[in-house]
């Protein structure tokens, strides 16, 4: 089943192009030019792409209303408003904020991240290198050995957090605070030890990790 995107954009040229681009990229698209009736479509969509400068209700108001009623549907702001205040205001309810002019490939990449994060796809099976991950049933299979990989609670959390932010570099502090729900203490080796044990279970060669990459001086990245 295709992911359905509600695209709210008043500019005809941009709206038409984005809609056709998304359809070409394999999504179903509902394109509307104002936010007033957006709520009517929310039952059938998996993701919302929202502009800020809209006729009538502005994007912030529309976004807040949608998020209030449908907190589990991701909202991505796509706007030519680039100031930090605008971004902060947008991100107070939206799940991502992208500025125009944007790179179409980046748009698709960000949509994929959101779709994964919110688990809106039916088939949640993902392949990363030699791993097959079924997010629905939280199962990780090594495709070479055909064996299930059993992770401890913390290892699983780290793995899933990196997977949710696929291809994104995360600092040690970000990972620690997300997984342990506690303040990161500088120089703490706990995360490093857990990553080492995780790698022993998922990597083919732990001396040359392919799935969880170390970004020296910053943190880690899971690469697809």
């Amino acid at each position: 089943m295709k992911t359905t995107i509600l695209h709210i954009e008043d500019d005809q040229e941009i709206g038409a192009w984005v809609s056709s681009f998304l359809i070409e990229s394999g999504y179903e698209v509902i394109w509307i030019t104002s936010g007033e009736k957006a709520i009517e479509y929310m039952e059938k969509v998996d993701l919302v792409i929202l502009d800020i400068m809209l006729p009538g209700l502005d994007g912030y108001t529309v976004g807040q209303r949608l998020k209030q009623r449908y907190p589990n549907i991701p909202i991505m702001m796509l706007s030519a408003r680039t100031s930090m205040e605008d971004k902060l205001q947008g991100l107070s309810f939206a799940d991502d904020y992208m500025t125009k002019p944007y790179h179409p490939d980046e748009l698709i990449a960000r949509i994929q991240v959101l779709v994964r994060r919110f688990g809106v796809v039916e088939s949640a099976v993902l392949e990363i290198k030699h791993l097959r991950i079924d997010q629905k049933i939280n199962r990780i299979v090594n495709t070479i050995t055909k064996e299930d990989i059993v992770l401890t609670g913390k290892q699983f959390h780290i793995f899933m957090y990196l997977l949710d932010h696929l291809n994104q570099i995360l600092t040690k502090k970000q990972i620690y605070e997300a997984v342990w729900k506690d303040a990161y203490i500088d120089g703490d080796k706990t995360l490093m030890v857990h990553i080492r044990h995780l790698r022993e279970k998922i990597e083919i060669d732990t001396s040359r990790p392919e799935i969880i990459e170390t970004i020296r001086g910053i943190g880690y990245r899971m690469k697809s």
Partner: peptide
């Protein structure tokens, strides 16, 4: 806005 259209 026009830059976006051009870029697309």
């Amino acid at each position: 806005t026009p830059l976006t259209v051009i870029r697309q």
